[in-house]
């Protein structure tokens, strides 16, 4: 039975990180209807900036965590300003393709640095022994990661529900024309949405880097695996991203915990999200909390 609860715990740890990573994707999609395929690269960039600041420049990890969030804030904002603002109103194919192209560019840039090919790990700053409660163990890094994730998600939800900027972002996602007519600057909201997405990506990157170690391949794979998460939750729902992130984490951990090794299966945790994605797309395409769009000619 403790095996079961162990899987539940690690599923929640993985799932909360998925939720944080998916949050950035949902933010961008909600306000500007752009699916950002370069999200994984921004996550990786955030993690590597933190690592660089902490290890190479000797900044305390807490400050480098904040600094990397600030840097990716402006990085994502400038990406929006330089590349995506020109494409407002273009067909959706062009927009998706530009983000795929951007992912490719970031890939190339990161491969040019030593971070592209080698493995690194953050210096340990938390106790290394695990906490064991009733046979279920969780490491300090995981626990702190989950706590930070939930605090951040709480902050983001507050930001959207209560703050003026957040309300204007929701207004833009609801009706761009109406938002414009009450004096909201739509391009500014797009830029802010990208910037907040970059910020959350950096946070996700740091937490993943602390838990699993820094490897470019695993980090940018997160940019792809969040797509099943956001589709399950509904592309434009923040609550959906959180719930679906945790569901997906649990599914993944249960698959690799119970299916791998039995029936001659292997690596099912990696493929399960995509199989679920295909099933959702066939039967409930707008996800758990997504809004069903009504189209008119």
């Amino acid at each position: 039975m403790s095996y079961f609860f162990q899987i539940v715990v690690s599923g929640i740890v993985v799932g909360s990180i998925y939720a944080l990573a998916a949050l950035g994707l949902v933010l961008v999609y909600k306000s500007s209807r752009v699916a950002n395929f370069a999200h994984g690269q921004i996550i990786a960039a955030g993690a590597f900036i933190t690592f660089f600041l902490t290890v190479r420049l000797g900044v305390p990890i807490f400050f480098s965590f904040l600094a990397s969030m600030l840097i990716t804030f402006f990085l994502a904002m400038s990406v929006e300003r330089i590349f995506l603002r020109r494409l407002i109103g273009e067909p959706i194919i062009s927009v998706i393709m530009v983000t795929i192209g951007l992912a490719s560019i970031f890939d190339g840039l990161i491969y040019l640095t030593p971070f592209g090919s080698e493995n690194f790990s953050f210096p340990t700053f938390l106790p290394t022994e695990s906490i064991v409660v009733g046979g279920v163990s969780i490491s300090w890094t995981q626990l702190v990661g989950v706590i930070i994730t939930f605090v951040l998600i709480g902050c983001f939800s507050w930001f959207f529900k209560k703050s003026t900027v957040g309300i204007s972002m929701r207004a833009v996602s609801d009706d761009q024309f109406g938002a414009m007519s009450v004096g909201i600057s739509v391009p500014r909201v797009f830029a802010l949405a990208w910037a907040t997405a970059g910020l959350s990506a950096a946070a996700a990157g740091c937490i993943i880097g602390n838990i699993t170690g820094l490897n470019f391949e695993t980090l940018h794979a997160f940019g792809i695996v969040v797509f099943p998460v956001v589709i399950l939750g509904g592309l434009d729902s923040i609550l959906g991203a959180v719930v679906a992130g945790i569901i997906m984490g649990l599914i993944q951990q249960f698959a690799s915990g119970y299916l791998d090794g039995n029936f001659g299966l292997n690596g099912t945790g990696d493929v399960m999200p995509y199989i679920i994605l295909l099933i959702i797309l066939l039967f409930k395409p707008h996800g758990l909390f997504g809004i069903h769009e009504i189209e008119r000619v």
Binding site: G101, L102, S104
Partner: peptide
Amino acid sequence: APNVATALKPLSFGLVIV
């Protein structure tokens, strides 16, 4: 020399697409 070819290929691809 971090493998230049693996870096430049995606970079040039991405730039061309964008």
